[in-house]
Nucleic acid binder design. Structure first.
Lengths: 344, 344
DNA sequence: CTAAAAAATACAAACGTTTGTATTATGTCC
DNA sequence: GGACATAATACAAACGTTTGTATTTTTTAG
């Protein structure tokens, strides 16, 4: 017969104390492994706790200690593999500091993000990690949270861990130009503070190579794979189809490669495609994707380390994260000279 | 100057009470919107709370109410898009019951899964959702948790929500047989309780079509995209390369299609590939993937609903979830008659 | 104007830990 | 065997809410 009474009395530290014939405080200290309590007692308590199925009450613990050893992680879109390496870095590092990571999905919506932050604050987490947070800087500035909130991949907030957001984009743009491309499309991401540096890099690279900026060559990607269809449609209708594309991220780049191939365009012969992030799949697709390697794992690690320092009240120099680098693969080549695409 | 003192005194209900000149109990009731307190007082308190930047202490709340309005979600692999729809269903439904969802990654490891469960239990969540949990049934049976633990996509545990795990596999196998295939490979997933029904369906389908079961045609997939390379390698070394593959899931199927294409094998002309789950990408790849549509969103919804019922102590009939159905697309066709592959 | 009913608020205990301090038991040394 | 140090344990207050009950205030009605 399945258990139908969920509110059954739980085993508390007091119950163990009673069973062991000691004071609750001795039980706590035993469970903490304190040297202050005799080894025999410690073992007795441990045994009893196990036998009685004791489960600590984190709520009570948090209440009195005022710390939870939990860090909150607010993630826009769990399914985006971009967060895979990042989360791994975060969890690995958190584990080293005996911290637990709790994730909340924000769906990339400001309202949900705010709810998530508030939720974490109510939970009395020791700190909050917010990669690619969508809420404006002003929100975080006025928040005055009692625990550190560290942003990842964003540079305009009080506490953040990031790496040179323009360097990678610049060098991949220069790569395209050096191959001979002049009509280079840029696919911007969902708008927000994270979006600007790439755009800036795009324009700077054009300028420094004496190429005019043409707003018609800038498209916008909503983050969903399906959207690449629309983008390609728009792009192919241009009087002069660009010879290269610098896409917002690998997802976008791969999606576009797919659609273009379906439409009979060969990558890189007819059109070059470059991505951003260097997700695991980037090496795996055909042709393999030229992209910017983004040090996600390190960003994750460093952000936890930084958060921890702040929480400990230590002076916290902004962490150093390796520079992004370009990975030149097969999806980029010199522009075609003759007819391109399937309208030949 | 950035805030360096994180342990600064927090605003509590008592502070508000003092400021408003009322008792703390009145403040709580005001914040809860209780009719028992005068409207004017309620508004005054609300205003004060906002002005003073009050943030409730969930720990204290949980301690006294013995419920947290949080459900824990232990997920093996966040990056697997399989969980995208599932999580969406879960979060949508949870929201309806004013529950928050907290996610913890288990990396598909039993030890981490156990830690996650314990962690949730200590956090005094109202219930735990464990899709594709890896720990053996015995673990959950003996756990005697004080809150309901509901498994999703698994049928051997006390509380679970699932749908007919064999029906989809059977019908896709029959589809392959009806196309004329007799040498059908099966790619099994990471071992575990979730793995068996598909395998059973595979064998049953073979048996009912008078096809001998050949253990050489069964491979094992570790869940990582890269692994499809090894699988294809092994498969192509068989004296008689199968004409169709029923893959563990869409990820596996898509990976294999990719590798096969690289090796010069055409899908479906040279070999048919069928997947399982019907992820969003399944429609998008080329050729589009024949697969089993798995009602993930509904599973997510129902599991929360079921969990909630259990938690409320209500009688909880096992939820009904729509049957999985097959989606016949372009990756399956009748077997080739002549020479296949690139060794022609 | 008073008594009773209703509305609004105050009181106090409880939830399960942790931790500083006080107390008791044990051991050590001359 | 006493004086002391040390080890082991007990005591008690606190963390910030919630909630049942008691109390006060206001309203209503006769």
């Amino acid at each position: 017969m399945p258990n139908r009474h969920w509110n059954k009395t739980r085993v508390t530290i007091k119950d163990i104390a009673k069973a062991a014939g000691v004071d609750p405080s001795t039980v706590t200290r035993s469970l903490q492994g304190s040297e202050r309590v005799k080894k025999a007692t410690r073992e007795k308590v441990a045994q009893l706790a196990a036998d009685m199925g004791y489960v600590a009450n984190q709520a009570a613990r948090t209440l009195v200690t005022r710390r939870s050893r939990i860090v909150g992680l607010a993630i826009p879109d769990m399914t985006n593999p971009f967060f895979a390496d990042l989360a791994r870095g975060i969890e690995d590092e958190a584990h080293k500091h005996d911290l637990r990571v709790l994730i909340r999905n924000t769906e990339g919506l400001e309202a949900v993000e705010r709810d998530a932050i508030r939720f974490f604050l109510e939970l009395k987490v020791d700190g909050i990690l917010a990669p690619m947070a969508r809420c404006p800087r002003s929100y975080y500035e006025t928040l005055q949270a009692p625990v550190p909130i560290v942003h990842v991949n964003r540079e305009d907030t009080p506490h953040h861990v990031s790496c040179d957001r323009k360097a990678g984009s610049l060098s991949i743009m220069n790569h395209l130009v050096s191959l001979g491309h002049r009509d280079i499309a840029f696919i911007a991401g969902p708008s927000g503070p994270a979006s600007e540096p790439k755009m800036q890099a795009y324009r700077e690279a054009l300028a420094s190579n004496d190429i005019n900026y043409d707003p018609d060559l800038v498209f916008s990607f909503n983050g969903q794979l399906d959207d690449t269809n629309n983008i390609v449609n728009q792009m192919l209708q241009l009087p002069k189809v660009p010879t290269a594309v610098f896409a917002w991220n690998d997802i976008c780049a791969i999606g576009m490669m797919h659609v273009l191939t379906e439409r009979g365009w060969r990558v890189p012969q007819d059109i070059s495609i470059a991505g951003h992030d260097d997700l695991a799949i980037a090496r795996f697709v055909d042709p393999s994707l030229t992209t910017v390697h983004w040090p996600l794992y390190e960003l994750g690690q460093q952000s936890v380390r930084y958060l921890y320092r702040l929480h400990e009240g230590q002076s916290a120099p902004r962490p150093v994260v390796p520079k992004p680098t370009t990975r030149i693969r097969q999806s980029t080549a010199a522009p075609a000279t003759g007819k391109r695409g399937n309208n030949a």
